[in-house]
Design a protein around this nucleic acid. Structure first.
Lengths: 222, 222, 222, 222
DNA sequence: CATGAATGAGACTTCATTCAT
DNA sequence: CATGAATGAAGTCTCATTCAT
């Protein structure tokens, strides 16, 4: 589904690395990092178990690589989305909507970023996660712009505001991902169409946008 | 089972169960559920490995029990804190401050609730987590009151608002917990004094409160 | 069911020992020695786990005691049955029929003697099983009488003949016990009425008797 | 899986499976199924513990596989032995002698089949043991032939006769196996009297044959 | 580069037995 | 005598990782 390298029929070197990353993304999303089996990732990638160790140092390294790669893509998508805009408020709204669209379109990416991100900070001694820092920086930049333009309240430090905004987005993503995700066995549908009873996360973006922008709005009279 | 023997100094039955829960809380917080070793929990609780299985069916059951017990305490504390208040806005502010105080005072509780809550939803097929539902209900109730009183914007459904608020609180808790939490081996300091470089999470409560209440504020002119 | 001591309402000392033996018989029959749990025997006997160790040195000792006690009863029953008879051939026939009746009436006794007897010889270093020796001696005595009387062939040593006869009886018992014993969960029926599809083991006694007596019959022309 | 690589000196895949089966046969024979340790089987097979689980699903599965494999071999040997014979009586005699020779030549096979067969029927819910059924069918076939030829008494149903015959053989096997079976674990008695006291089981075959054939002989005058 | 059979450390859990009450 | 909570040794099985082919 999120297959950029699918047109390559042969197993070129880069292709194989990508296939492993894709498989890892799906398996980690499905099972969680600890429960995920290297052998299953290999099977899903169509390579031998040992091959994974030609491209990644360890299972940990594989998880980190999935992070970096996916987060980079997310950051790029978000940066592109707000690139042409001038109004900080519009940038913020677009950022929010684009993020939630990504969650809907690539649930297993969201799963990994949302759920595994936390565990990872703990079990890996000092994985500083620079891409996530990039994400926060990008968001904080939008907020700072708004503050500089006088559109947004300057009381709250922009990095803290970014963090809170991420909290809202992340929680919504989690709520949406878990809704109707009652049977983890339904492997095939992980990336498939959302379950019927899930709320529409992108329509929720309106509320979220209102909540966040208003929350940060400049208080003229207070 | 025997629920109110906590003040007993001797190792009464209930006491032992509590000691295991306390130890599990700390070890889960430190290592994460998967990396936590039952034998370490036993050692930390001062009981034999097998004793744990007299009180809990499995490691999974132990995690669930820690959840339920801690979440129940959190809910009680929050409910008590807002019990005497009448203004919805004040309730909301108090809820937020109390939650963040809890995070600061009992970091390992926060760790378990914040980090493990997510994994748990995945690896346990159908652990519906009723206490967390209670938490959300309590918070949504406060929001709904504010909406009914005309203080808060009714556009956003109260349950969704509650979820977003929790997202903010949760993300802040996580950010605070991970700041300076670079070495999980420093067992002794898990519940000890916060690392110097951590921001003051309770002082952040002001910003958070402002962000959230303003975010939900009624828009007179919209 | 096979409760000789049921009339004692109170738990007199001897009564308790008997109750433990009865419970052990049933549980060993149901689960086999290794899978049997001491705690289940205790529960079924209506005593505490530790109480068993006031009467028996170990789980092994308990199994041995069940053997000895049951085998003694079997031997007594068989000895009584042939006591009044004079014809060796009739003694043999009666021995066979009585044994198979015992199997039908007390299947859990048969289960223990038939199935567990074998394992026991192995896992217990040097349990010589004197009661089983008594059994063989009793049977060999009958054969020897018949040989002395000229009714039975003297070519086969009586002890070996006894062993072969036991083999036939034991195999039939086993076949009968396992027939329809398809669901071990049906605990309640272990000592209950035989399953419908089981062959009638006592009617089979006729064939068995014919097979054995004829097999040992004196060959007039050899 | 790869079934005919037994002559290969190197550790080919099939070879390893065979080596595990051989080791399991010996260890099960020595210690019994429950007391047998997977790690000891692995050591005796010269493989790592985990390797066993590449070839067998569980310890139970390993026992079943030993059964099937050994019983199949026994059946084949017996079928071959009687293949060229025409007289039912001779077939029966040969069957008996061949079986007892097998016991003498491969005691650990006999041990597993004789002792463990019983336990297995109990602890495994529904292991129907088709090879043992084959064995009984083969033997019953011989009896039926004899009955059809008028050589053997038709009163006893052939399957029941087969069962009784097996009882005799099995009991003799057990008696022989346990005689002087000073259990390798019994270090103290290693220096004790050698196996001298074992009777010659194959010479006993004569008696057994006489007992059985005469037992089934047609009664001309009854 | 790729394979996948083999490794072996180590986790969870059970359960016979003890002993303070 | 009786209890039953507690013990802790030990076993089965898993799975990340390696390395000979």
């Amino acid at each position: 589904m999120t297959a950029h390298s699918s047109e390559a029929g042969r197993a070129s070197s880069g292709d194989k690395r990508e296939r492993i990353l894709d498989a890892a993304e799906r398996v980690f999303a499905r099972a969680g990092f600890f429960a995920a089996r290297v052998s299953e990732i290999a099977r899903e990638a169509g390579v031998a178990d040992g091959t994974i160790y030609l491209y990644f140092k360890s299972k940990d390294d594989l998880l980190i690589s999935v992070f970096e790669s996916r987060m980079e893509r997310v950051n790029q998508t978000l940066a592109d989305a707000i690139a042409g805009l001038t109004s900080p408020r519009q940038k913020l709204t677009t950022f929010i909507r684009t993020y939630l669209e990504l969650v809907r379109e690539q649930p297993s990416v969201a799963e990994v970023l949302t759920v595994e991100l936390r565990q990872s900070s703990k079990f890996m001694k000092s994985f500083s996660n620079p891409r996530f820092a990039d994400f926060l920086r990008l968001l904080a930049g939008v907020v700072a712009e708004g503050q500089a333009a006088g559109e947004l309240d300057s009381t709250i430090p922009a990095p803290m505001a970014a963090r809170m905004i991420f909290g809202v987005l992340d929680e919504l993503a989690l709520a949406w991902l878990l809704a109707g995700d009652s049977s983890p066995e339904l492997i095939d549908t992980v990336d498939g169409p959302p379950k019927a009873k899930k709320f529409d996360i992108v329509r929720a973006a309106e509320w979220v946008g209102a909540f966040i922008t208003q929350g940060l709005e400049r208080r003229s009279n207070v």
